[in-house]
């Protein structure tokens, strides 16, 4: 597996790695049996226009080089963005942000997107907000997968 320099740079010096104290929400995805586990912590704040923005974000990842690099770039891309904007982040943008991923590792970007969306889902749910149907569905799918992991690890 040959990674490009940007991927290796994010992997060696990951941005926003670690735990966030008092997060507003955590998105947990992945499954150790399949390979990668990714947790994204977010803190949300209202900006001067009253829009909710991702004020702080951190991640914890168990996984390969691509999993750590995609986690890093995702947090970097999203930090300071509004929730609406963050929900629109795509795998394509993550891969482009890293200057490409080996074909076999493209799925890692999906994991990062899912973790981010799950964190936002948890935030919206916690604050009693309306959740788009597609996000609800995505959450259900993630819940099925993470259930087994939670039982094992926590």
């Amino acid at each position: 597996m040959i990674y490009n320099k940007k991927v290796l740079e994010h992997f060696t010096n990951p941005r926003n790695a670690g735990e966030l104290k008092d997060p507003d929400a955590i998105g947990k995805v992945g499954n150790i049996v399949c390979g990668d586990v990714l947790w994204i912590y977010i803190k949300v704040k209202k900006d001067k226009d009253g829009k909710e923005v991702i004020d702080d974000i951190k991640f914890k990842t168990f996984g390969c080089v691509a999993a750590i690099a995609t986690s890093s770039i995702t947090t970097e891309l999203v930090k300071g963005k509004t929730i609406e904007e963050a929900l629109k982040i795509t795998e394509k943008e993550i891969i482009e942000g890293l200057g490409g991923l080996p074909k076999a590792k493209v799925h890692c970007s999906l994991l990062a997107v899912r973790a981010l969306r799950e964190a936002i889902y948890q935030y919206l749910k916690k604050s009693g907000r309306e959740i788009p149907e597609w996000l609800e569905k995505e959450h259900e799918r993630i819940e099925k997968q993470t259930d087994a992991v939670e039982k094992r690890l926590c």
Partner: peptide, 21 residues
């Protein structure tokens, strides 16, 4: 794989046989 490439970044070369290698 992550450990192998972190070591690689410090000039230590070893291998993994795990999923991602």
């Amino acid at each position: 794989e992550s450990l192998v490439l972190r070591l690689d970044s410090k000039g230590i070369y070893c291998s993994t046989a795990s999923a991602c290698s």
